[in-house]
Structure formats: structure tokens, C-alpha cells
């Protein structure tokens, strides 16, 4: 029974090649709220499945999870579609949750780590939908220069991408910190692999931003974010920072 649960969990806490199913599904879901729901709930299902078994995870899960995370972080470098990019980063970060579980972190704690990764992705899905409404596609390198044409939107986008790639003081940083603390005593080599994946996220995030906000504005897809929307996003980002700061303290 346990191997079957592990296999099912590998679909929801995506390990390659089962991870391809999640990304195929995400690509087909076009409704923004459904995408958000998927990003929020998918890893939690995997964690709930794993909570039903008390068997310790095999050591094989460490290289498998690290390589899956590295594969999707690497692939995110060349992904120009914002939706696909979110899916790749989600897959990469959720795969790392296996490492925290292997290191003995409590399932409830790992669920919070997953939430730390998912919440900024929800905001990114919303921003992607905004871009699709304005330009017909959320695609890098097609209509750069958003910092010039949509300054408020660009500022929010920058902060959300920073939150996604686990910049301090956002919750994803706390998740990465907690997982690093957990894995270093048991497997320092895995910790190094995990940190290299983190480095790739930063690279992918910078490429995404440079493809969207940098350059001269040559297309106008309507007006910038309204003041109310800007304040709403800012409040949500502020809440994420507060959650991140609390989470860091709570890890220690």
C-alpha cells in the first residue's frame, strides 16, 4: 500500500516524470481562479497522502527530488510564457518538500513550507491574467518596457517575482531556510544541490523580469494598475513579508 501512496504523492508533490502531468494540466487550465486553486491545493494533497503512512522515505528520494527540482529550475530559464514559468518554478520548489520530509520535518510544518511557495505563485497567476487581458499573452521578450508603460504594474510584478524566487523576507525564503537547516546534518551534499537550485531560480526570475519590464515601451496595452489594485497588491505583499518574518523566527 505504501509504495502506491508514494507513487500518488509523487504526482502531487511532483517528481519527474510524473511532474509532466501537473504541468500539462496547468497549461490547460485557463481560468485564473482555477489556476490559483491548483497552485494552492496540489502540493497539499500530496502532503496529506504522505501523512497517511508512517513508513520512512527511502534515501532514493533525495537525488530524485533534487534532480527534479534542478531540471525544472533549469527549464524555467528558457520558458518565456509566464504561466508555464510559474508551473516550472512550482514543480521545482514542491519537489524539494520531499527533502524536508526525508529529514524528519513534521508534515504540518512542511505544509506551511508548501504554502510559502504557493502564495506568491497565486499573485503571479493574477498578474499573468492581467497581462493576458492587456496584451493577449503573458510572454517575455514580445512587448518589453513595461517599467515605462505600466510602472505600478511593473513594481508589483518585480516584488511578486522576488517573492517567488525566495528572496528574504518572503515566506519562500523561510521555507528554504527551514529545509536547509533540516537537511544539512543528514545530507550536506543534498543541501548544496538545493542551494544550487535556488541559484537557478534567481537566474530564471531575472530573465523573466528583464524580458518584461526592461526596454523602451513600444506597445500600450491599456492603462496601468489602478490605485486600489496597487494598494491591494501592496497590502498582500506586506502580509507576505510579515508572514515571512514570523516564519523565519519560528524556524529558529
Amino acid at each position: 500500500m505504501t509504495p502506491l501512496i508514494w507513487l500518488l504523492a509523487a504526482l502531487f508533490l511532483p517528481l519527474f516524470p510524473l511532474s509532466m502531468l501537473f504541468n500539462a494540466l496547468l497549461a490547460r487550465v485557463t481560468h485564473v481562479w482555477l489556476r490559483g486553486l491548483l497552485l494552492l491545493v496540489w502540493p497539499q494533497v500530496g502532503l496529506a497522502l504522505l501523512a497517511t503512512t508512517s513508513q520512512p522515505l527511502p534515501d532514493l528520494v533525495l537525488p530524485w527530488a533534487t534532480l527534479t527540482a534542478a531540471l525544472y529550475a533549469l527549464r524555467a530559464l528558457a520558458m518565456r510564457d509566464l504561466g508555464g514559468w510559474s508551473g516550472f518554478i512550482a514543480t521545482s520548489s514542491w519537489a524539494l518538500l520531499w527533502i524536508a520530509l526525508w529529514a524528519g520535518r513534521d508534515h504540518a510544518v512542511v505544509a506551511l513550507y508548501a504554502l510559502g511557495f504557493s502564495l506568491p505563485l497565486l499573485l503571479l497567476a493574477q498578474l499573468g491574467a492581467c497581462l493576458e487581458r492587456r496584451f493577449g499573452a503573458a510572454y517575455t521578450g514580445v512587448y518589453g518596457g513595461l517599467a515605462q508603460s505600466l510602472p505600478r504594474f511593473s513594481a508589483i510584478l518585480v516584488l511578486v517575482v522576488l517573492a517567488v524566487v525566495a528572496t528574504p523576507l518572503f515566506p519562500a525564503f523561510a521555507s528554504m531556510l527551514g529545509m536547509t537547516i533540516a537537511i544539512v546534518p543528514g545530507s550536506p551534499a543534498t543541501a548544496v544541490g538545493m542551494l544550487l537550485v535556488w541559484l537557478l531560480w534567481t537566474w530564471a526570475g531575472a530573465r523573466l523580469l528583464q524580458g518584461l519590464i526592461v526596454g523602451t515601451a513600444d506597445a500600450h496595452g491599456g492603462g496601468d494598475l489602478g490605485r486600489a489594485a496597487t494598494w491591494s497588491y501592496s497590502a498582500l505583499l506586506g502580509a507576505l513579508v510579515v508572514a515571512g518574518v514570523v516564519s523565519i523566527g519560528w524556524q529558529l
Binding site: 536547509t180 537547516i181 543541501a191 544550487l196 541559484l199 534567481t202
Partner: peptide, 19 residues
């Protein structure tokens, strides 16, 4: 990118010292 390359060993060192 270079700075991030430098961040990672510092974090690793911090966790090793804490451990």
C-alpha cells in the same frame, strides 16, 4: 548572479555553525 553565488556558502556556513 555573482552575489548569489556568494550568498549560498554563507548560508551553508551559518547552518553548519548552528548545527
Amino acid at each position: 548572479f555573482t552575489y548569489r553565488i556568494g550568498d549560498l556558502p554563507l548560508l551553508l556556513a551559518a547552518v553548519l555553525l548552528f548545527d
